[in-house]
């Protein structure tokens, strides 16, 4: 069960979002990810761990490497949550439609 807090905090960091953008163009290893960000591998690994926990990336084992790629799971959770929020707001505005229908047309 994904924790939405983890997903949002995963997204709440510019470096991690940059990593996600990079992964949007395809799978990459820690080494490949570390290069453009001028970061140490351990630092990148820490970010990857956060992204993995957040359900935003998955990693597979290939020999000694563990390439990362995007995972839809985390974003789907965010999207689902936004949908719930959207549904709540939609309900308010449906109510507002009825209030407006009952209002006297405003005089100019």
């Amino acid at each position: 069960m994904l924790n939405l807090d983890a997903t949002f905090s995963g997204l709440a960091d510019p470096t991690r979002r940059a990593i996600l953008s990079r992964l949007a163009s395809g799978e990459a290893t820690v080494l490949e990810l570390a290069k453009p960000f001028k970061m140490s591998q351990p630092a990148v690994s820490r970010h990857l761990k956060v992204l993995e926990t957040a359900g935003l990336i998955v990693r597979r084992v290939e020999g000694t490497k563990r390439p990362c790629r995007l995972s839809g799971e985390g974003l789907a959770a965010v999207d689902e949550w936004l949908n719930v929020l959207r549904a709540g707001l939609a309900r308010n505005y449906d109510r507002l439609d009825r209030v407006l229908a009952e209002m006297q047309p405003p005089t100019e």
Binding site: L89, Y93, L96, D97, V99, L100, A101, M103, P105, P106, E108
Partner: peptide
């Protein structure tokens, strides 16, 4: 964003 059938004045007042 949301569209309403009523004019802006009504929506503003609501």
């Amino acid at each position: 964003t949301r569209r309403f059938a009523a004019p802006p004045k009504s929506v503003y007042l609501a």
